Simulated scan of single mutants.
Amino acid sequence: MVKNTLAQEVKIRPAIHLPLTPLEEENRQLKREVERLRQERDIVKKAISIFSHVPA
């Protein structure tokens, strides 16, 4: 599950309130994408499990 803090949503550093550097912003975006892809992977795994079950 994606966990966003207020600081992440506002795109500021919590302690000093400066805008994120381009690398920090890219890192933030990549972490969000990784979490989304993990969720998609888990959904696909569950779907495969459901549809590959052969009733007896």
Rank of each mutant, 00 (worst) to 15 (best):
M1I: 08
V2E: 08
K3I: 14
T5I: 01
T5D: 07
L6M: 06
L6C: 02
L6Y: 06
A7T: 02
Q8M: 07
E9M: 15
E9S: 11
V10H: 06
K11W: 02
I12T: 02
R13N: 15
R13V: 00
R13M: 09
A15T: 13
I16V: 14
L18H: 09
L18D: 09
L18I: 14
P19D: 05
P19A: 13
L20T: 00
L20I: 02
T21R: 03
P22Q: 08
P22D: 02
P22I: 01
P22C: 03
P22L: 04
L23Q: 14
L23E: 15
L23G: 05
L23Y: 14
E24Y: 02
E24F: 01
E25T: 03
E25F: 00
E25H: 04
E25M: 02
E26V: 00
N27C: 08
N27M: 14
N27V: 15
Q29V: 02
Q29D: 05
L30F: 11
K31L: 10
R32G: 06
E33C: 04
V34S: 15
E35N: 11
E35M: 04
L37H: 03
L37C: 04
L37Y: 12
R38P: 01
R38W: 02
Q39Y: 14
Q39S: 15
E40M: 12
E40P: 05
E40C: 09
R41F: 13
D42Q: 12
I43S: 07
I43Y: 08
K45H: 06
K45R: 14
K46C: 12
K46Y: 10
K46Q: 15
A47F: 07
A47C: 04
I48T: 05
I48A: 12
F51K: 09
S52N: 08
S52V: 01
S52W: 09
V54K: 13
V54F: 06
P55F: 12
P55M: 04
P55T: 08
A56Y: 06
A56R: 08
